[in-house]
């Protein structure tokens, strides 16, 4: 039922500090169409390398997750930044969040338009304002005041997303079901050499959503959460269900109670499925560097980097490894 990923390190004995740094990314939980599998896997693997290089160079977990997610936003294979799904009017509205586990500082944007990298804007909300979330036109006004260039909407729309939008306008289409077929939301969690955790999540949201619909992604505790005292989580899946159980925060509550990253992630996803029938996926780290990539959906493209080894997978139980050097 759940994605089954085993720690590569579980059969190797090592010191705790050997586990740092670590970065784990996801490219969305759901059913990924056959022709897009390779794009999705190569995308998360390339992104995780970027994040890992930053961490190895002594960079912060915040820098690592932001740069990782920027790369995924720029990749049209994913539903974030360029490649975002379209709302019911055929427009792109994007959501993103970042959170710093050291200070609990957080920045988010919701329903923002014409921005190539919403995750960067979310970080600016955190760094440059006294607020934690800016929405819609207000978020765009702030972007202008920060000198962030607005891009034409067409530059964010792919042929693929336009095709899916048209298909879902058909009277018999079910956007909620087809949502589970998306190559979804992107996200990353990391622990840096100092043991600080961070998370970042970005999305174009749900296919054919109403104008102004805000999903789980920019919602603190739902789309992501990071706390040095417990760990960091980035989530993906059916947004409305993730919100109703505040999935990221729920997983970290389980970790605060002594559960492992893997058990806590599975418990959170199981609760979401048994209580509300919702499917999704998560990437989770704890401050010691233990990590998990778990999902209840059919697939989730994910990748992790730790101890110069890259881990990745797509189907339940799949876990490939490869040296990074």
């Amino acid at each position: 039922m759940f994605g089954f990923t085993r720690y590569y390190l579980s059969d190797t004995s090592c010191q705790m500090t050997d586990l740092l740094p670590v970065v784990v990314v996801h490219g969305g939980a759901g059913i990924i169409p056959k022709e897009r599998l390779q794009l999705s896997i190569s995308g998360v693997c390339a992104a995780v390398r970027t994040g890992y290089a930053i961490l190895k160079g002594g960079g912060s977990s915040m820098d690592a997750v932001v740069e990782t997610v920027i790369q995924l936003e720029n990749n049209p294979a994913f539903n974030a930044g360029c490649g975002s799904v379209l709302n019911v009017k055929g427009e792109v509205e994007m959501d993103a969040i970042v959170m710093d586990g050291k200070t609990l500082a957080s920045g988010a944007v919701s329903a923002v338009r014409n921005i190539a990298n919403p995750i960067q804007l979310a970080r600016l909300v955190m760094d440059k304002t006294s607020h934690a979330c800016l929405t819609a036109e207000g978020a765009n006004q702030f972007a202008r005041s920060m000198g962030i260039e607005e891009v034409p909407q067409e530059s964010l729309i792919t042929e693929y997303s336009r095709m899916r939008w048209r298909k879902n306008l058909a009277p018999d289409a079910n956007p909620v079901e087809s949502q589970m077929g998306k190559a979804g939301t992107v996200g990353a969690v990391a622990v840096d050499l100092e043991g600080n955790v961070a998370c970042a999540t970005s999305t174009g949201g749900m296919l054919n959503k109403m104008e102004g619909r805000v999903g789980d992604t920019p919602i603190i505790g739902s789309g992501g959460y990071a706390d040095n005292q417990s760990g960091a989580v980035s989530t993906t899946g059916h947004g409305e269900t993730i919100m109703k159980i505040t999935l990221a925060r729920l997983i970290l509550f389980h970790m605060e109670q002594g559960r492992s990253v893997e058990d806590a992630s599975d418990l959170g996803l199981a609760c979401m499925q048994s209580r509300l029938g919702g499917l999704g996926g998560v990437v989770t780290v704890d401050p010691q560097g233990h990590w998990a990539a778990r999902f209840s959906s059919k697939q989730m493209s994910w990748a992790a980097a730790q101890r110069d080894i890259m881990h990745y997978g797509l189907y339940t139980g799949e876990h490939f490894t490869q040296s990074i050097n």
Binding site: A111, A136, M210, G212, R213, V214, G215, G239, M243
Partner: peptide
């Protein structure tokens, strides 16, 4: 009346 949890800004006013 919607399948969503949250609507924002102009979208909320349109609804």
């Amino acid at each position: 009346k919607t399948s969503h949890v949250m609507l924002t800004s102009q979208g909320a006013n349109l609804f």
